[in-house]
Design a protein around this nucleic acid. Structure first.
Lengths: 157, 157
DNA sequence: CATTAATACGATAATATTTGTCGGACTTAT
DNA sequence: ATAAGTCCGACAAATATTATCGTATTAATG
């Protein structure tokens, strides 16, 4: 439930890797190519290639053509949020899709739907969460993410 | 991205409806049957039937057989969390499934995976969020759900 | 300037998941 | 006994995800 797609996982792994190559202390900062990442994580090359192309088109990474080419982060890891990455790959965040649907594709329940508004609040919380965490936060330290609900009471099996 | 399945939506709509029938001021409390809910929301009857059966098996609602039969909530709306409902329908919460995988089905990246731990933190936050919101919270009022991240800085396009 | 190692991109195949349907068995109120 | 409901498994259809292939383009290098 609420699982991320493999493409999203691949994107995050690649960005993590690129961040550690560019900003880590251990290696010389350099461009990273698709094959390298694919082999490191046993990801199908062609698929990862598309993922990286998508990230490039969304200005999360920058591409360099030709031999010795590859990709580098388009900005500091701190300035790349998880939300940006996931949305680049999987499309806009939405636990229901009636929040960004076109007029002609409204769902059958739209008129009487009783969960749209409450779920929108849930979605906004998740959105805050993912926007508040960056690639830098994934690097090692443990970013404190605290969710507080009005309800401390009840809700038990 | 992170979209709920239709079955999950149907479950929430049905529970919302049942809660308003059982606890609302406008109607006499009574048992609710599948057909009634399906027609109210234009949901395929057979599919909704399965959803309700699942909720019954998970002790979220109680079933009553025979004519005049149907379902009622197994406990107060306040004591039914969104997380319980979603997990009943879609299985355990997990933005990656390596958190509850069997030994034999480990993913190809397990050994070198660099995002497992950070994503687990995200998952736990989402979990808190969904556990902290109940069917009652969906009924009308606006439950305050506040997400606070350590990072107030940055993360912008 | 030819070669080669890389990205860019569209089409399509393979697989998995979700959604929806069907048929029949069981339960119980009347 | 009948009819209105739940229960349940199997299956069909539709959709989405994952993976592959082929070809074009770009640019570093000898």
């Amino acid at each position: 439930m609420l699982k991320l797609s493999k493409k999203a996982d691949y994107a995050l792994m690649a960005l993590h890797y690129m961040a550690s190559v560019q900003f880590g202390d251990l290696t010389e900062a350099r461009v990273v190519n698709t094959k390298e990442v694919a082999e490191e994580y046993h990801i199908p090359v062609e698929l990862l290639a598309k993922v990286l192309q998508t990230l490039a088109k969304q200005d999360i990474i920058e591409s360099h053509n030709g031999p010795k080419g590859g990709y580098i982060l388009a900005r500091e890891p701190k300035l790349i949020s998880i939300a940006q990455v996931l949305e680049a790959i999987e499309g806009p965040l939405g636990i229901a899709d009636c929040y960004h649907e076109k007029e002609d594709s409204l769902c059958d329940q739209m008129d009487r739907c009783n969960i749209r508004t409450p779920l929108l609040r849930v979605q906004e919380s998740i959105s805050q969460l993912l926007n508040g965490m960056s690639i830098e936060d994934m690097m090692s330290g443990s970013p404190l993410i605290i969710v507080e609900s009005r309800k401390e009471e009840g809700v038990q099996l």
